[in-house]
Design a binder for these strands. Structure first.
Lengths: 218, 218
DNA sequence: ACCTGAACACCGTTCAAGT
DNA sequence: ACCTGAACACCGTTCAAGT
């Protein structure tokens, strides 16, 4: 009601943060790295971002949505790592092994992050699977599928007979192998394997599967 | 201080429950089946068992220990299922495929239970991994290892050269494949695969790995 | 030995209110 | 539009107390 009712000078950014949404995701990533688990509370994330414990609700419907955004960013990073790792690799069999090794390394180097990617939202048993997250996970998987498609069409993997159905199943098997290996390694169930042996073990596992793909059709 | 100070008549069972420890585990299993996730609270488990919210602390150091006991029971059940499934199967390659299929089916039929087995304690990032739980997980894994050992010594898997180190790695690869497949299926990441197709897909994935094991040494 | 009830410091989420 | 502060119904865990 006073004279200073309106000011049109300022650009339309939020006044407290430049981008609170991003700040919250970064705060969550910090807590993840520091505590090596994702048991941190939403209130803790808000404190880290120096806002009240309710400010996050302006950017995320609930805690799950924040975790989903963090998880999605992880899948995209993983996809980029895999893509970069095979940039110069022509042979599909070699590329598939290389991708598997890089995948496992990402998980082992970022165990809490990796567990959050799969466990926080996707694994919650809820039907509310945010579209962004599923898309990001598919994007990571598509790197594997792409290689297997190349191997099928170039007859490096003759057992697939260049058949889309078989290619789909083989991609799922490949993802299963690297995902399972990563999880077991993170959870300390990979025997008494010393950490420096993980790379070699992952490579061996990937090679065994690739050998199966190269073999004659069943 | 009164005359009724001691009574030695009663057998030494706890007075409220016959076995509250077991009742708590069963209550947790009920909640798991009903809610299809393990976000239930310790207080809720206590209510289900009709005791105060502190009674559990007489049997478990904390909530994690209760979850660990539930998880351990899951691994033992899974081990038994696998053992039974291969009772009449002689050939190691067929046994390995069969075991994989049964493994995946157990996970898909009990998704919340399966996720709890790996995610609640093993995946918490804590160093407090209860001995019982790790032993139970190893017992389940040993079914896979046993089959692969037979395959190696009978030259069904010649690539392993009956070498303990290679057998260990192959067992880890096999567990990785079925664990990863199960997790992806549960988390809805197994493509658009209809539920009834999971068995066939798991079998195909296992066969691919087995084909790799049967192939010539790398 | 086993269980209860009060208490503490936390949560996630909602609501009314401020600018 | 974005944020704050009070409030609600919960937690996990501890402690003193009961039988």
């Amino acid at each position: 009601m006073t004279a200073t009712k309106k000011r049109r000078r300022e650009p339309p950014r939020s006044y407290h943060h430049g981008d609170l949404r991003r700040s919250l995701i970064e705060a969550a990533l910090e807590l993840l790295a520091e505590e090596q688990n994702w048991t941190f509370s939403l209130r803790e994330v808000a404190r880290r971002a120096r806002v009240s414990h309710n400010a996050p609700y302006n950017h995320f419907a609930d805690k799950q949505q924040l975790l989903a955004a963090v998880a999605a960013s992880g899948f995209l990073t993983l996809r980029d790592r895999m893509r970069k790792a095979i940039e110069g690799v022509d042979r599909p069999d070699a590329a598939l092994v290389k991708t598997g090794v890089v995948y496992v390394r990402f998980g082992i180097e970022n165990p809490a992050f990796y567990k959050l990617m799969f466990g926080s939202v996707l694994g919650s048993g809820e039907a509310e699977r945010p579209e962004d997250l599923v898309e990001a996970a598919d994007a990571a998987k598509s790197v594997l599928t792409g290689i297997i498609e190349r191997g099928a069409s170039s007859a490096v993997f003759p057992g697939l007979r260049n058949d889309p159905k078989r290619i789909q199943l083989a991609s799922l098997a490949a993802w299963s192998l690297v995902h399972g290996f990563t999880m077991l390694a993170i959870d300390g169930l990979a025997d008494g394997l010393p950490r420096r042996a993980f790379n070699a073990a992952a490579e061996q596992a990937a090679k065994t599967l690739v050998a199966g793909l190269k073999g004659s059709p069943e």
